Simulated assay, not measured.
Amino acid sequence: MAEHQGLLPSEQPLQLLDESGVPVVGTDLRMPDSQRLLEAYTSLVIGRRVNDQASALVRQGRLAVYPSSHGQEACQTGAALALADGDWLFPTYRDTAAVIARGVDPVEVLTLLKGDWHAGYDPYAHNVASQATPLATQLLHAVGVAHAARLRGEDTVVMALCGDGATSEGDFHEALNFAAVFKAPVVFFVQNNEYAISVPLAKQSAAPSLAHKGVGYGVNGERVDGNDAAAVLAVLERAVEAARSGEGPQLVEGHTYRMQAHTNADDASRYRSEEEVDPWVARDPLLRMETYLKKKRVLTKARQAEIAEQAEKVAAHMREGVNKDIEPNGAELFAHVFAEPTPQLTEQAAFLADELSREGN
C-alpha cells in the first residue's frame, strides 16, 4: 500500500507562479533558471502569434481549419522544451505551437490543415510524429516508439500529448496499461482544457482528477497549473528525467482552458457562457511569465521588442508560405498509403488518372 501511495498526484495542481506572476512559496518544485524561462517566454510569444496568424489565414480561406491553442501555450511550450534533441514528441491536431517550438517549419506544419498533403513535414527531421486528428491513436504509437527504444538500449523518452477528451478513449487505457507493464519511457501529458469539443469534463470523468487515473495502471501521476509556464516546464522536466532513468511511464495533467472555440467550425457560445470564460483571461500564461521576468529584470524592453520581432517574422513566413497556390496532383492521393499499393488502390489511381486525362482533352 505504501508503494502505491506514491502514485497519487498532489491534491492541488502544482504552481511556481500565481496568476499575478508572483512566485509561490512552500513548494518543493524547483524554479527553472532565468535563461530557461526566457526561452520559454519566447516560445510563448511565438506560439500566441502563430495561433493568431493561423486563425487569420482560416478567415482568408487559406487554411481549411485551425484548432487554436490560444491560452494553452504554456502546455505547448513546456512539452517541447522539456525534451532532449533525441527524444520524440507525439502531438495532437491542437498542438501546432508545440510542434513549431520543436523546430518544425510552420508552413510545413500547416500543410495538413490546409489540406495539401497527408502531413507536411518529415517526422524524423525533428523527432516529431505527424499531428493526430483521431483522439488518442497517437498514444499507442508513442508507446511503441518508446518500447522499441528501450529494447534497443537507447535513453530516448517520448512525450505523448492528448486532451481530456482522449482519456475517455480505449486507446488511452491500452497505451497506459502496456507502457506500465513494460516500463516504456513515456510521459503522457494530458492538457485538460475542460472541454471535449462541447462536452464538459464533469460529463467525461468521475475521477478526482485525470492524473488519478494513473493509479489503476501503476503509473505515477502529477497535476500542474497548465497556465504557469514555469511550473509546467519544471514538472515535465522532472517527469522526463524519471522516465529516462527507468522509473517507467509518467502521467501529468495540465489544468488549462480552451479560450477559443474548438475550431473555426465550432460555435462555443452554444455550450458555454462568457461568464465562464472571463476568469481565465486573468490566468493568461503569457502575461504571467512576462510579469515575473520583468520583475526579475530578465526581460528588458529591448529584449521584449526583439522577441516580438522574431514572432512577427514567423507570422510573415506563415503568410508567405500558406498563400502560395499549389497545383494539385491527384496522383498524390495514393502515395505513401501502403508500402506496396493494394490492387484496390492501383485500380482507383488508374481510374482517377483516366478521368483527369479526359478532362484535359
Rank of each mutant, 00 (worst) to 15 (best):
M1G: 14
A2V: 15
E3A: 14
E11H: 06
P23R: 00
G26S: 05
T27V: 08
S34R: 07
R36Q: 05
L38N: 01
V45T: 03
V50N: 00
N51V: 01
Q60P: 03
G61C: 14
G61T: 14
V65G: 05
V65L: 14
Y66A: 01
H70R: 06
G71T: 00
C75N: 10
Q76C: 06
L83I: 11
G86R: 14
D87Q: 09
D87Y: 13
F90S: 13
R94Q: 03
A97N: 01
A98Q: 05
V99T: 08
R102G: 08
V104R: 06
D105P: 04
D105Y: 03
L112H: 14
L113I: 01
G115I: 04
D116R: 15
W117I: 08
W117R: 11
Y121Q: 04
D122A: 11
P123T: 12
H126G: 01
N127F: 07
T137K: 07
R150T: 09
R152T: 12
E154G: 03
E154K: 10
V158M: 10
G163S: 08
E169F: 09
E174Q: 12
A175W: 07
A179N: 06
K183P: 01
P185R: 08
V187T: 07
V187E: 04
F189L: 14
Y195M: 04
Y195V: 09
L201Q: 14
L201T: 15
K203R: 15
P208L: 03
S209W: 00
A211T: 06
V215Y: 13
V215W: 11
V219H: 08
R223Q: 12
V224D: 03
V224T: 03
N227R: 11
L233K: 00
L236N: 03
E237K: 09
E241R: 07
E241I: 01
R244K: 09
R244D: 06
R244A: 02
S245D: 13
E247S: 13
P249V: 10
L251E: 01
V252F: 06
E253I: 10
T256K: 05
H262A: 06
N264M: 02
S269W: 01
Y271M: 08
S273N: 09
E274S: 13
E276Q: 13
P279C: 12
A282P: 03
R283L: 13
P285K: 02
L287D: 13
E290R: 15
Y292A: 05
K294R: 15
K294N: 00
K295G: 14
V298L: 01
K301G: 10
Q304R: 13
A305S: 14
E306M: 05
E306A: 12
I307H: 00
Q310L: 08
M318H: 02
D325R: 08
N329Q: 12
G330P: 10
G330N: 05
L333C: 10
F334I: 05
V337K: 12
F338R: 12
P343E: 12
T346E: 15
E347T: 11
Q348W: 15
A349F: 08
L352F: 14
L352A: 07
A353I: 02
D354E: 11
E355A: 10
L356H: 04
R358P: 00
E359R: 12
N361Q: 09
